[in-house]
Design a protein around this nucleic acid. Structure first.
Length: 567
RNA sequence: UGGGGCGUAGCCAAGUGGUAAGGCAACGGGUUUUGAUCCCGUGUACCGCAGGUUCGAAUCCUGCCGCCCCAGCCA
């Protein structure tokens, strides 16, 4: 168990489960994660996955991965595959508990036959519009359908013929007979089955009718022996219907539905429809675009399962609407990556640096640690030479106060190498600095006689010859406002798109050890951030890097504060 | 104006009658050949508001206010 898990405390759901176990209501806990295969999993789903699989793990129970495939119009096998891959990647194991609501189509059908027999369900032949009119409104009760009191035999016959495909879509529907005046709209004779003469990705042409969510979900839970059916707040209103179904059918178990609030992360959206629209409009490259809040996107971005699980754990489970600040997610990512990512030297925006007193043609290898706190991760050799590249941002001709990187006449240490002093600047015709000339102090090499000499700053570098040019992609938030989904002022989420969310740089320079990096490998580019070798666009010998997240940057913060002060 | 939920610091979140944990953020400081990491330290949160019960209430009662969800043959 991680530290985060240990300090997270118990949420109300785990408290209920603990009590149910202690009180003998259950001897084993069974949960399920029931996605509809109609889109990619996103950060919000991660919460539900971690809760359901996590609870099963912690209490020694079982968790089903069940696809809620009751609407063949919207669902697709591709999504099934991506969801399985995502859950697995997050580190959860459903073992032999991979199921589909469609596995139970025959059971749902039998249940409805049973309800009809008991006079608790009927075939309605009103049109969809008429049913809507009869439903009433939030403040007015509904009216009974003229078909509500059809004879049991007629209902059975009609339902049989619906299944047989004798009617067109929309001709009939079967409804639960509950109460058209119920204040809870879900109880105003909810639809249980509808005709849809379309093939299903798993059952083919076997069915002409398909069950609705409430029926399918409740019965599936019961058939699988689910003890705690955990879902999000918007289903709270459905609980009375969930219980009505349980009460009126002869089922092998009685699950309890418990609702918790969804998790939203600021500056993002999780609506599948809107995410799909971003792809459709070409604003992002696909479901796995590293800027997407999808599991696939975050994976490609370099977020790790450990980071995501840590994050979810730190947020907690409650019933309060929440929008978590990005910093909380980034903190979890940094915590995880800091521990695991090997350090490496790379220059994002190169500026040529020449060591005037370093012998022409000389070259040497400097030893660098792969991780500052984990010596067992070893060291590597860094080629050093007369001509180097440093980060353009690490040199300023006329720096502000407290800038302790390189400046004319100033000294700085080259990471793992020597202390150097800037003696001259070369510029192009239009005045931009093209080269920095320095001298180095041979005694200050790491491990050398004057290695202990203190200078204010240390900067990273790469040898000019013995380094490689690579493409690096820098990402920023997709939206400019914290709650783009909220459209408080009638605005649309599309009005808030961050046009600068992707920056591609092709002239970055990395140390030679990186050239053979495997796709998916993660590194810390010292002083800059964490990067992953892109799994889609990298080719052997030519890695493309995605920046997962920057390092914390107190200098940038100082600069911003200073800027704010001046203005 | 029907029903269902929720309201503890900027964002999360403990707490369930005995006088407000923790994390993130922010702000100081120490260590540091990553301005990273690590380590210290800093918050009067009128516990949505107003009444009430009680020796004592974030916790119990009443009223009010604010926010979210529901009128798919979607899930």
């Amino acid at each position: 168990m991680s530290d985060a898990a240990a300090t997270a405390g118990k949420d109300f759901i785990r408290t209920i489960i603990t009590e149910d176990l202690a009180g003998g209501q259950h001897t084993e806990i069974v949960t399920r994660f029931p996605p509809e295969p109609n889109g990619y999993l996103h950060i919000g789903h991660v919460m539900s996955i971690c809760l359901n699989f996590g609870v099963a793990e912690e209490f020694g129970g079982r968790c089903y991965l069940r696809f809620d495939d009751t609407n063949p119009l919207k669902e697709d096998q591709d999504f099934v595959d991506s969801i399985k891959a995502d859950v697995e990647w997050l580190g959860f194991d459903w073992a032999d508990r991979l199921t589909y609501a469609s596995d139970y189509f025959e059971d749902f059908h039998a249940c409805v036959v049973q309800l009809i027999e008991a006079g608790k369900a009927y075939v309605d032949s009103l049109s969809a519009e008429a049913i809507r009119e009869h439903r009433g409104s939030l403040t007015e009760p509904g009216r009974n359908s003229p078909y509500r009191d059809r004879a049991v035999d007629e209902n059975q016959d009609l339902f049989r013929r619906m299944r047989a495909g004798e009617f067109d879509d929309g001709a009939h529907v079967v409804r639960a007979k509950i109460d058209m005046a119920a204040p809870n709209l879900n109880l105003r004779d909810p639809t249980l089955y509808r005709i849809r003469k379309v093939g299903h990705q798993r059952t083919g042409d076997a069915w002409n009718i398909y069950p609705m969510y409430d029926l399918a979900h409740t019965i599936s839970d019961a058939l699988e022996g689910v003890t705690h059916s955990l879902c999000t707040l918007e289903f709270e209103d459905h609980r009375p219907l969930y219980e009505w179904i349980l009460d009126n059918l002869d089922l092998p178990a009685r699950p309890r539905q418990i609702e918790f609030s969804r998790m939203n992360v600021a500056f993002g959206i999780t609506s599948k429809r809107k995410l799909a629209a971003l792809i459709g409009a070409g604003f992002v490259g696909g479901w796995d675009d590293p800027r997407m809040p999808t599991v696939a996107g975050m994976r490609r971005r370099g977020y790790t399962p450990g980071a995501l699980r840590r994050f979810v754990r730190s947020v907690g489970v409650t019933k309060k609407d929440k929008i978590i600040e990005m910093s909380a997610l980034e903190n979890a990512v940094r915590e995880d990556l800091n521990e695991h990512a090997p350090r490496v030297l790379a220059v994002l925006n190169p500026l040529k640096l020449v060591l005037l007193n370093y012998p022409e043609g000389q070259a040497e290898q400097l030893t660098a640690a792969n991780h500052p706190h984990r010596p067992e991760l070893g060291t590597r050799e860094l080629p050093f030479a007369r001509e180097l590249f440093i980060e353009r941002d690490d040199f300023m001709e006329d720096p502000p106060r407290k800038f302790f990187r390189l400046r004319p006449g100033g000294e700085v240490r080259l990471r793992y190498g020597y202390i150097i002093k800037c003696v001259a600047v070369v510029r192009t015709d239009d005045g931009v600095v093209s080269e920095v000339h320095c001298t180095y102090d041979p005694d200050t090499r790491s491990g050398g006689p004057a290695a202990g000499r203190k200078v204010k700053g240390t900067i990273h570098w790469v040898a000019a010859e013995a380094s490689h040019e690579v493409e690096v992609r820098l990402f920023d938030r997709l939206f400019l406002v914290a709650n783009p989904d909220g459209n408080r002022d009638g605005g649309d989420y599309r009005d808030h798109l961050n046009e600068a969310s992707l920056r591609v740089t092709t002239h970055c320079r990395v140390e030679p050890s990186l050239i053979g990096a495997q796709a998916g490998a993660v590194f810390q580019f010292e002083r800059q951030g964490y990067f992953i070798v892109d799994t889609v666009d990298s080719v052997p010998g030519r890695p493309v890097f995605n920046r997962t997240v920057t390092l914390r940057d107190t200098w940038a913060k100082l600069e911003r504060a200073e800027l704010a002060r001046i203005q």
